[in-house]
């Protein structure tokens, strides 16, 4: 049984049918990339998985439970965390408060403290700035904070939406290294990216989304060598 299984999912955004019946699977321990151009429906897919928008049809099964009717806030405790597009850290709160909000659905105080130490070890810069207001952090630091915040819920799966957006190439590489490390320490990752090259370089498998449909899927290395993918998403001719 896959950790996360999406079947025939349809989602509308306002009057627009953004996702037109897609199915895909994420196995435990994998890094799965969902690539596609702007407007392909990548963010909508993640919003639907987290429960921020309802499904029109289809189903989401996570950890063998049907998520379709479960409200967004309960999905966190079930082991699903999202690092949203544009980071969306709480700008007016301190770094530490942001991290503690990540652990909102947990009650094991000692476990939370342990987790906080882990996050600070993984992101030393966040430790230095723990009492700083999050809005004053740089874009890269805010991305780290958003990832640390998601880790604080001790998720089985982490959904990442455009982690490379607006970051310098060096920072992008750093962020992708961190994603890989997070995966290696046991968290399954579903990664949504416009930067297909980077995403495919760390993913096990990938799905290509185009105007609400999955048009291609396979092993990341196979997709990397696929002519149509190279032309459309890797900027090669």
């Amino acid at each position: 049984m896959a950790l996360l299984e999406i079947k025939d999912m349809e989602v509308s955004y306002g009057f627009i049918r953004a996702i037109k019946g897609i199915s895909f699977k994420v196995e435990k321990g994998e890094i799965i990339a969902l690539i596609g151009a702007n407007g392909a429906g990548k963010t909508t897919t993640l919003h639907a998985l987290s429960g921020l928008i309802p499904l029109d049809a289809g189903s989401i099964t996570f950890n063998e439970q049907d998520l379709t009717k479960i409200p967004a806030h309960e999905r966190v405790a079930m082991g699903m965390a999202q690092v949203p597009e544009g980071r969306r850290v709480f700008q007016q709160l301190t770094v530490q408060k942001n991290l503690m909000l990540g652990a909102y659905s947990r009650k094991d105080q000692s476990g939370i403290a342990e987790n906080l130490d882990e996050v600070f070890t993984r992101f030393p810069r966040l430790k230095e700035r723990r009492n700083q207001i999050a809005g004053t952090l740089s874009g890269g630091e805010q991305q780290m904070l958003a990832m640390g915040r998601a880790l604080m819920s001790k998720p089985d799966i982490m959904l990442l939406d455009e982690p490379s957006m607006g970051l310098s190439p060096i920072l992008v590489s750093e962020i992708f290294d961190i994603i890989k490390h997070i995966n290696e320490s046991g968290t399954t990752v579903l990664l949504v990216e416009q930067n297909a090259k980077k995403a495919l370089s760390i993913a096990n498998r990938a799905y290509v989304l185009e105007t609400g449909n999955i048009i291609l899927s396979g092993k990341a290395e196979d997709l990397m060598n696929d002519d149509s993918v190279r032309k459309a998403y890797l900027g090669e001719s």
Binding site: L52, H73, V76, Q82, R88, F90, Q92, Y104
Partner: peptide
């Protein structure tokens, strides 16, 4: 803390597991 989070970004608060 949940109140502060909801007041700043309702969607992000939901992603934290906060019942808005």
């Amino acid at each position: 803390a949940a109140m502060l989070a909801v007041s700043e970004d309702r969607g992000a608060a939901e992603l934290m597991g906060i019942n808005v």
